[in-house]
Amino acid sequence: MDLSSFSQHYAEARQKFLDASLAAGLLVESWVHPLPGRDGEELALDVARLGAPDAANLLVISSGCHGAEGFCGSGLQVDLLRDAAWFKRCKRDDLAVLFLHALNPHGFSWLRRVNEDNVDLNRNFLDFTQPLPDNPDYRALVHLLLPKRQPPTLSSTLGLIGYALRNGRMALQSGISRGQHSDPRGLFFAGTAPVWSNLTLRRILQQHGQHCQRIGWIDVHTGLGPTGVGEYIYKGRQEPEDIARGRSWWGEKMTNSTEGNSVSAELNGTIDLMVLETCPQAQYNGLTLEYGTLSGIKVLNALRADHWLYCNPQAPDAQIQRIKSQLRDAFYVDTDAWKRAVLQQGRKVLDLTVFNLTRPLL
């Protein structure tokens, strides 16, 4: 367990991933983003693979779907790449491991949860040829949610709290976070077409996932739940046999937003929909590994502040720095204790996944 696997900014995280992949003997395929990073650096979704192209079982470990959450998943990936013993356990004829570093590199570099189009990537995997899901609850909340000034008025914050008291905390969270298509400059915008990361990820999966029989996918996120606690949130088909298989893999602590027992609300347009569509031949077993950071209200206020800054880019430099620090702290707890908890729990989840992924299909 190597706490130096974590980084302070995107460019450092990417370099550590590239160096660790090279040291482990893995080739990296870099899907370069068309825009530069905050400091002019190249942005990319970097892919490293361990194992044969025709391996029956594929373990995917992805980071940075929500850009500013990338610090956590990147640290876990680099720690694994540096661990010769873990690599040795994964070197099997029937297993391949795919590392996807920074699914949303633009958000990671610019310290935004969303991408270059203000789109929440994990709400963007929809069939855009069909009518898009409506979210009237978001429209009912938007006048309270999006501040006209920073910090937001006390009355708007109390209005959100009042909504939660009247309708329940999860109703508030669902209305805000499940995804919306009515306000391109608002929070949790899901887009009106597939974004760059969506299209790129589909191409990567077509290359690496269409020959396997079984996929186990761990997508690392932060921002919900108690500080340092990793929740196993099921992502896959909502069929009884699929959910039961998930619990047989990851135990009774596995939660499911559809069942109402997760810190996350039920969401639209998540990554698992794309995997199921792109790799229909494979049995899919997916988890969002969600690590808690700060309290829910602090995380929400960080998102509200970042949205205000998105709408007011002419803000003074000192205020920009405060807001960006606030957002970073909401999704990355830069302490040894938190990082150690991330690595310990991440290893446990991945060991369970490798064990179950390589068991004979029933």
Rank of each mutant, 00 (worst) to 15 (best):
A244W: 06
Q150I: 00
N124K: 03
P280S: 03
A13R: 02
L35W: 09
P240N: 01
W110V: 06
I204E: 02
F6C: 09
G225K: 06
F17N: 02
L43W: 02
G209T: 04
Y138N: 05
R14T: 01
W249T: 10
G179K: 05
S325E: 14
G67W: 02
G40C: 06
V60E: 13
P316Q: 08
A244E: 14
N167V: 07
G230M: 15
Q213D: 15
G223Q: 05
F87H: 13
A68Y: 09
Q206Y: 00
R14D: 04
S109T: 00
R340W: 06
R92T: 08
R149L: 13
G269C: 07
N122G: 11
P34C: 02
A193C: 08
S30M: 03
L327D: 00
L160C: 08
S248L: 14
I297W: 15
Q344Y: 07
C311D: 14
G159M: 06
D94T: 07
S74E: 11
E41H: 08
L121M: 14
I233L: 15
L205M: 13
G228I: 03
G162N: 13
L273G: 10
Q173M: 15
V28I: 02
L154Q: 15
N268E: 12
Q15R: 09
A11V: 08
A56P: 00
N198K: 04
S262Q: 05
A265H: 11
W338D: 10
H9P: 00
D137H: 06
L154K: 14
K88D: 15
M254D: 11
Q15K: 09
L201W: 02
R359V: 06
I297N: 07
C212R: 03
L154W: 14
L303E: 12
V32N: 11
G67Q: 03
D19A: 08
W250G: 02
R14L: 13
N124S: 11
R247G: 12
L187T: 06
L98V: 12
L294K: 11
F6T: 09
Q326Y: 04
I243K: 15
I243G: 02
Q207S: 14
L121I: 11
T227D: 12
L27W: 03
G168P: 05
I161L: 15
L158K: 07
P316S: 00
A318M: 09
A337H: 15
K348Y: 09
A318F: 12
D329S: 12
K253L: 07
L343I: 11
R322N: 14
R359A: 10
G260K: 15
L327C: 03
L201T: 12
G223I: 06
L309M: 08
Q281Y: 03
Q207C: 08
L81S: 08
Y232E: 10
L352A: 13
P136R: 01
G51D: 04
Y10F: 09
A164E: 14
S197K: 03
P136I: 06
R185D: 15
N198R: 01
M254N: 06
C279E: 01
G37P: 01
C90S: 10
R328H: 07
F87D: 04
T258V: 13
I320W: 12
H181E: 01
S197R: 00
N122Q: 08
N57Y: 00
D329H: 10
Q319S: 09
L201A: 00
Q15C: 01
G191N: 12
Y234W: 09
S74I: 00
I176T: 01
L357F: 10
W110Y: 10
R245Q: 15
S325V: 00
